[in-house]
Measured scan of single mutants.
Amino acid sequence: MSIQHFRVALIPFFAAFCLPVFAHPETLVKVKDAEDQLGARVGYIELDLNSGKILESFRPEERFPMMSTFKVLLCGAVLSRVDAGQEQLGRRIHYSQNDLVEYSPVTEKHLTDGMTVRELCSAAITMSDNTAANLLLTTIGGPKELTAFLHNMGDHVTRLDRWEPELNEAIPNDERDTTMPAAMATTLRKLLTGELLTLASRQQLIDWMEADKVAGPLLRSALPAGWFIADKSGAGERGSRGIIAALGPDGKPSRIVVIYTTGSQATMDERNRQIAEIGASLIKHW
């Protein structure tokens, strides 16, 4: 067993022997301040990774656009098919120029040779490549099948209805392509620590998230040296922004954090800054 596999296998073990965790309302004060600064709703939840206990939450059962955070769930569904012998990570998928959609920095470079399922998941999570996500959605049967996968996990809230990039439209009061912070946090925890996926697939999923290259201005910008984070960000229309993450000190994750916002007129930089400040408060009061 590799060191990384050992780390993920012992996530519940280490967490069980940690000192009790206590909620700190100071972080919620910052979440509410972010709402004021952005002029928009902000949803927040913080779960203990081992027990699933909610440590703090704000608007945990209000719907927010998922945006690209759905790509972690998508690759979880792909990995479940791999575990069941219905898919192979090494299978190569070929596609054409007509398949390319807006923001496809990886797939646009491989029109000639195609990409493997493993490479597509890596591109979808680490670079948020939209064509990679659409190609992977095709392998599982489309958005409705991802929703069905989530329902089978016990998540009857999260739903995907459309493809990239239309799913980022974020129309107010439109339930399409949305989740709730509580539902997303619980589902992410199941994917990373539950028995739904094999140990190898859980490790692969967290490795992809740990290698995320496009979430630097968010929670990662607030992390002290030595902290662990595996995350996936999302951005959408109407001032929408979000991030889902597993993080913790001492090089291992111990909490799940989900943050979503929508309806702001603020710039992307300002949305990023507010999420980073929430992260800084979380870490300060850990």
Results as ranks from 00 to 15, higher is better:
residue 24 H to F: 09
residue 24 H to M: 11
residue 25 P to D: 05
residue 25 P to N: 13
residue 26 E to Q: 15
residue 26 E to V: 15
residue 26 E to Y: 14
residue 26 E to W: 15
residue 27 T to H: 13
residue 28 L to F: 03
residue 31 V to Y: 00
residue 32 K to N: 07
residue 34 A to M: 12
residue 35 E to K: 04
residue 36 D to Q: 15
residue 37 Q to K: 06
residue 39 G to K: 09
residue 39 G to V: 11
residue 40 A to H: 05
residue 41 R to S: 13
residue 42 V to M: 09
residue 42 V to N: 03
residue 42 V to S: 03
residue 43 G to N: 00
residue 43 G to W: 00
residue 43 G to K: 00
residue 44 Y to A: 03
residue 44 Y to F: 07
residue 44 Y to P: 00
residue 44 Y to Q: 00
residue 44 Y to W: 03
residue 45 I to C: 14
residue 46 E to G: 08
residue 46 E to T: 08
residue 46 E to C: 10
residue 48 D to A: 06
residue 49 L to H: 10
residue 51 S to D: 13
residue 51 S to P: 03
residue 52 G to E: 12
residue 55 L to G: 14
residue 56 E to A: 04
residue 56 E to P: 00
residue 57 S to R: 10
residue 59 R to Y: 13
residue 60 P to S: 11
residue 60 P to H: 06
residue 61 E to M: 14
residue 63 R to N: 14
residue 65 P to R: 02
residue 66 M to S: 12
residue 68 S to A: 00
residue 68 S to H: 00
residue 70 F to G: 14
residue 71 K to W: 00
residue 72 V to S: 07
residue 72 V to T: 08
residue 73 L to T: 06
residue 73 L to G: 11
residue 75 C to D: 02
residue 76 G to Q: 02
residue 76 G to N: 01
residue 77 A to V: 07
residue 80 S to D: 15
residue 80 S to L: 14
residue 81 R to S: 06
residue 81 R to F: 10
residue 81 R to K: 06
residue 82 V to S: 07
residue 83 D to G: 08
residue 83 D to E: 14
residue 83 D to F: 03
residue 84 A to E: 05
residue 85 G to P: 02
residue 87 E to D: 13
residue 87 E to M: 08
residue 88 Q to S: 10
residue 88 Q to N: 12
residue 88 Q to P: 08
residue 91 R to L: 08
residue 93 I to K: 15
residue 94 H to I: 06
residue 98 N to C: 05
residue 99 D to P: 09
residue 100 L to R: 11
residue 101 V to S: 07
residue 102 E to V: 07
residue 104 S to K: 03
residue 104 S to G: 12
residue 104 S to R: 14
residue 104 S to D: 03
residue 104 S to N: 02
residue 107 T to D: 00
residue 108 E to A: 15
residue 110 H to F: 14
residue 110 H to M: 09
residue 113 D to F: 05
residue 120 L to D: 01
residue 121 C to S: 03
residue 121 C to D: 01
residue 122 S to F: 14
residue 123 A to Y: 11
residue 125 I to A: 04
residue 126 T to W: 08
residue 126 T to K: 09
residue 126 T to P: 03
residue 127 M to H: 07
residue 127 M to W: 13
residue 128 S to F: 01
residue 129 D to T: 01
residue 132 A to C: 03
residue 132 A to R: 01
residue 135 L to V: 12
residue 135 L to G: 02
residue 135 L to H: 09
residue 137 L to H: 04
residue 138 T to S: 14
residue 138 T to C: 12
residue 139 T to S: 14
residue 140 I to C: 10
residue 140 I to M: 11
residue 141 G to V: 10
residue 141 G to Q: 04
residue 142 G to T: 06
residue 144 K to G: 06
residue 144 K to N: 10
residue 144 K to L: 08
residue 146 L to M: 03
residue 148 A to V: 04
residue 148 A to C: 04
residue 149 F to G: 13
residue 151 H to E: 04
residue 152 N to G: 09
residue 153 M to E: 04
residue 154 G to E: 09
residue 155 D to R: 00
residue 155 D to K: 00
residue 155 D to L: 00
residue 156 H to M: 13
residue 157 V to P: 03
residue 158 T to D: 00
residue 158 T to V: 09
residue 158 T to H: 02
residue 158 T to M: 03
residue 159 R to W: 14
residue 160 L to F: 10
residue 161 D to L: 03
residue 161 D to R: 03
residue 163 W to V: 07
residue 163 W to R: 12
residue 164 E to D: 02
residue 165 P to M: 12
residue 167 L to E: 01
residue 167 L to V: 09
residue 168 N to E: 06
residue 168 N to W: 02
residue 168 N to A: 04
residue 169 E to N: 06
residue 169 E to R: 06
residue 169 E to K: 05
residue 169 E to W: 07
residue 170 A to P: 13
residue 171 I to R: 15
residue 172 P to N: 13
residue 173 N to I: 07
residue 173 N to L: 06
residue 173 N to M: 10
residue 174 D to Q: 11
residue 175 E to R: 08
residue 177 D to P: 00
residue 177 D to I: 00
residue 179 T to F: 01
residue 182 A to Y: 11
residue 186 T to F: 12
residue 186 T to W: 11
residue 186 T to N: 15
residue 188 L to E: 02
residue 190 K to Y: 15
residue 190 K to A: 15
residue 192 L to S: 07
residue 193 T to G: 12
residue 193 T to F: 06
residue 193 T to H: 15
residue 197 L to T: 07
residue 197 L to E: 14
residue 197 L to R: 12
residue 198 T to W: 06
residue 198 T to L: 09
residue 200 A to T: 12
residue 201 S to N: 13
residue 203 Q to I: 03
residue 203 Q to D: 04
residue 203 Q to W: 03
residue 204 Q to F: 05
residue 204 Q to L: 08
residue 204 Q to Y: 04
residue 205 L to T: 04
residue 207 D to K: 09
residue 210 E to N: 12
residue 211 A to H: 15
residue 211 A to I: 13
residue 212 D to M: 03
residue 213 K to V: 04
residue 213 K to G: 04
residue 213 K to N: 07
residue 214 V to C: 15
residue 215 A to Q: 08
residue 215 A to G: 15
residue 215 A to W: 03
residue 215 A to N: 15
residue 215 A to T: 15
residue 216 G to Q: 08
residue 218 L to W: 02
residue 218 L to R: 02
residue 219 L to D: 09
residue 221 S to P: 11
residue 222 A to I: 15
residue 222 A to P: 12
residue 224 P to C: 15
residue 225 A to D: 13
residue 225 A to H: 11
residue 225 A to K: 14
residue 226 G to Y: 06
residue 227 W to F: 07
residue 228 F to P: 00
residue 229 I to H: 02
residue 231 D to V: 14
residue 233 S to H: 01
residue 233 S to Q: 01
residue 234 G to Q: 00
residue 234 G to P: 00
residue 235 A to D: 02
residue 236 G to L: 02
residue 236 G to M: 02
residue 237 E to L: 13
residue 239 G to A: 08
residue 239 G to M: 02
residue 240 S to P: 02
residue 241 R to Q: 12
residue 241 R to G: 08
residue 242 G to Y: 01
residue 242 G to L: 00
residue 242 G to H: 02
residue 244 I to M: 07
residue 244 I to N: 02
residue 245 A to M: 11
residue 247 L to T: 08
residue 248 G to H: 12
residue 248 G to R: 02
residue 250 D to L: 04
residue 250 D to Q: 04
residue 251 G to N: 15
residue 252 K to T: 09
residue 255 R to V: 13
residue 255 R to P: 01
residue 258 V to Y: 01
residue 259 I to Y: 07
residue 260 Y to C: 11
residue 260 Y to Q: 03
residue 260 Y to F: 07
residue 261 T to R: 06
residue 262 T to W: 07
residue 263 G to L: 07
residue 263 G to P: 08
residue 264 S to V: 08
residue 265 Q to W: 11
residue 265 Q to G: 09
residue 266 A to C: 13
residue 268 M to E: 10
residue 268 M to S: 12
residue 269 D to I: 05
residue 269 D to V: 10
residue 271 R to I: 05
residue 272 N to W: 01
residue 273 R to M: 10
residue 273 R to T: 07
residue 273 R to V: 05
residue 274 Q to V: 05
residue 274 Q to E: 10
residue 275 I to W: 03
residue 276 A to T: 06
residue 277 E to S: 13
residue 278 I to R: 01
residue 279 G to H: 03
residue 280 A to F: 11
residue 280 A to T: 15
residue 281 S to K: 07
residue 281 S to P: 10
residue 281 S to H: 08
residue 282 L to H: 03
residue 284 K to T: 08
residue 286 W to C: 01
residue 286 W to H: 08
residue 286 W to V: 03
